[in-house]
């Protein structure tokens, strides 16, 4: 197209209207290209919405796969516990060490336990746990379902008179939705424990005093919205991980793409959900 345009432009007999017509063609091509991108984006969005709707519908069907649901709870909950405990503990220590100098400047070191506990419970605990699990279980779901798709295991399930949406997707989404809040509670606990260790690196505060200082600045309304949003984080990770795996292509390359997309999209959505949750909480309190 570009060459034709140059040839036309160099030709002495070329008329102005020809150039205008070529420009119009180029503009039209760009419009078509942008339209295709928009079509792809909206069709992907529509497919995701349909997937969520179908999964939600299957959640209320009669033949719930309870054993598989329990197995997934174990896989997500129990097998992530160690990672969450270590991360939570380190998070608490680091946050305390980083915050101490700023508070010391104003002579407010006694506020350190309360400030760190509030940060962990309201924001850092839920978000960091969700992001870690987006990487761990989101990618796991994407890769596992993706490889099942590639090796025809999902098709085999379907011809065995089993609904793969019910067996594979519903169980994973529900397990992620229920296990994430539990893991956040553990992360909060180990974060506060880590904070106590952090305080004791440069001071000497008993655990009882630390806890009492920490919880004087926290009430139930700090705790509840933070817990509620973790259910949504879990659902987002479950839905995205399963969607990417379930809709993977037929080649082995698509397994990697599914795992990667699961992590990227679910991490981004966790942040967006957090933003919305913070806005709603702010309006309500």
């Amino acid at each position: 197209m570009k060459n034709k345009y140059i040839i036309l432009a160099l030709n002495p007999v070329v008329k102005a209207k020809d150039i205008v017509s070529m420009q119009t063609v180029r503009l039209a091509e760009k419009v078509v290209e942008k339209k295709n991108i928009a079509t792809l984006f909206f069709s992907d969005l529509g497919n995701r919405a349909l997937f969520v709707a179908r999964t939600t519908k299957e959640m209320f069907s009669r033949d719930f796969e309870f054993r598989e649901f329990l197995r997934q709870c174990f896989e997500i909950g129990n097998k992530s516990f160690g990672l969450i405990a270590i991360t939570g503990g380190i998070m608490g220590v680091v946050l305390t060490i980083q915050s101490r100098p700023a508070l010391a400047e104003f002579g407010a070191v006694t506020m350190l336990p309360g400030m760190v506990a509030l940060s962990i419970i309201r924001e850092i605990g839920p978000v960091i746990t969700a992001l870690i699990l987006a990487g761990k279980i989101g990618s796991g779901m994407g890769a596992e379902l993706g490889s099942m798709k590639v090796t025809e295991q999902i098709d085999a399930m379907e011809v065995s008179a089993t609904n793969p949406m019910r067996y594979l997707v519903v169980t994973r989404v529900l397990a992620a939705t229920l296990m994430l809040p539990l893991l956040v509670l553990f992360a909060d606990f180990f974060g506060i424990l880590g904070s106590w260790i952090g305080v004791n690196i440069k001071g000497d505060v008993s655990f009882v005093l630390f806890i009492s200082q920490a919880f004087t600045s926290i009430d139930f309304l700090d705790f509840l919205p933070a817990l509620v949003k973790t259910f949504f984080f879990g659902a987002v990770i479950g839905f995205v991980g399963c969607y990417e795996g379930y809709n993977a292509g037929r080649g082995t390359e698509s397994v990697g793409i599914a795992a990667n997309s699961a992590v990227v999209v679910s991490s981004l959505l966790v942040i967006i959900v957090d933003l919305i949750a913070v806005q709603i909480t702010d309006m309500m309190l």
Partner: peptide, 17 residues
């Protein structure tokens, strides 16, 4: 119900890993 009466052997075997 129809699928229950049909056995399907997949090219890859499709065993659940």
């Amino acid at each position: 119900n129809v699928r229950k009466k049909i056995g399907f052997l997949f090219q890859s075997g499709a065993l659940y890993d």
